[in-house]
């Protein structure tokens, strides 16, 4: 397998706001009524790397994940996953990836077992094999046996999010896209998910892209972090390297949050926009 898991070059995505004129200005810049969600972004993610993306709200983080996940088509640039172009070879990319989004999307009337069986079959897993794997994974992430057959709507948001992670793990993806997987989780659940992310890299050599608003989470989990603002990557480096971008004040070493605020001038918020 290739050493470069993700290769993004000059990736560009613009959205049209409804009920406004989508015309472009003559200088090629987006006109009023357009939102540039990803603005000529370039970076590479190495195999087995845990790559973090930090952003203020609406700065194109979810859009970036969706572009890599083949759920959006870029307006410019290119993105490759293990050498496969996300636009020209979407199915080759889809075979290698899975995604966990901030909203745990399930058929809420169905049980975790029924939802996960559906997910497993979509990726070609035989049912007998999938049932065994589902029990093992759900047990591993702390879902009680009696909850496996109950409708998802009877579970807490934290439990639903864990099942969402289980769904992604079930297919053993080479690249796992985690879009704010711990938002809304209690501290214990958050810690369990973080441990799971580490285990996944160690045991399965999985490459992980993690978007988060949690600076501590980014710092303890990620090998490298990209800070995005207004659709652009404004800084990219190791947590240690990023901290060195900001001078220490009053004898205190800057935190990742200091770096973030300095580079973006914005507060982090946990609400989805794009």
């Amino acid at each position: 397998m290739q050493k470069i898991a993700i290769d993004v070059e000059e990736l560009y995505k613009v959205f049209r706001k409804p009920r406004r004129r989508p015309w472009r200005a003559r200088d090629g810049k987006p006109a009023a009524g357009q939102v540039v969600a990803v603005d000529h972004v370039s970076f590479q993610v190495h195999r087995r790397e845990i790559f973090g993306v930090l952003r203020p709200n609406g700065s194109g983080k979810s859009t970036l994940i969706r572009l890599i996940a083949t759920l959006l088509l870029p307006d410019g640039g290119r993105a490759e996953v293990f050498g496969h172009d996300v636009v020209r070879e979407p199915m080759a990319v889809q075979r290698l990836i899975n995604r966990v989004s901030v909203e745990a999307s399930f058929f809420k009337k169905l049980s975790p077992m029924e939802n996960l069986l559906y997910g497993a079959r979509l990726y070609g897993l035989p049912a007998s094999q999938a049932r065994v794997a589902i029990h093992a994974i759900l047990k591993c992430i702390g879902i009680e046996e009696r909850s496996i057959g109950q409708p998802m709507q009877e579970m807490s948001r934290g439990m639903q999010q864990k099942v969402a992670i289980a769904r992604a793990l079930l297919t053993r993806p080479a690249l796992l896209l985690l879009d704010e997987p711990t938002t809304g989780l209690d501290p214990r659940s958050k810690r369990e998910v973080q441990d799971l992310v580490r285990e996944l890299r160690e045991q399965d050599d999985t490459t992980i892209v993690l978007t988060t608003h949690d600076m501590v989470e980014a710092e303890v989990l990620c090998d490298r972090i990209a800070i995005m603002d207004s659709g652009k990557v404004v800084a990219l480096g190791t947590p240690q390297g990023l901290r060195q971008l900001v001078p220490s004040r009053n004898g205190h070493q800057p935190t990742l949050e200091d770096v973030f605020l300095e580079l973006t001038g914005k507060q982090l918020v946990s609400e989805e926009r794009v």
């Binding site: 969706r66 996940a69 083949t70 759920l71 199915m91 889809q94 075979r95 990836i97 899975n98 995604r99 989004s101 909203e103 999307s105 399930f106 058929f107 809420k108 997910g119 979509l122 990726y123 070609g124 769904r167």
Partner: peptide, 18 residues
């Protein structure tokens, strides 16, 4: 329509199937 409502449509369309 149900898939849109539940938000699962992205997972269905992201699956490696024709």
């Amino acid at each position: 329509g149900l898939e849109r409502w539940e938000g699962t449509i992205e997972y269905t369309l992201m699956a490696p199937i024709h």
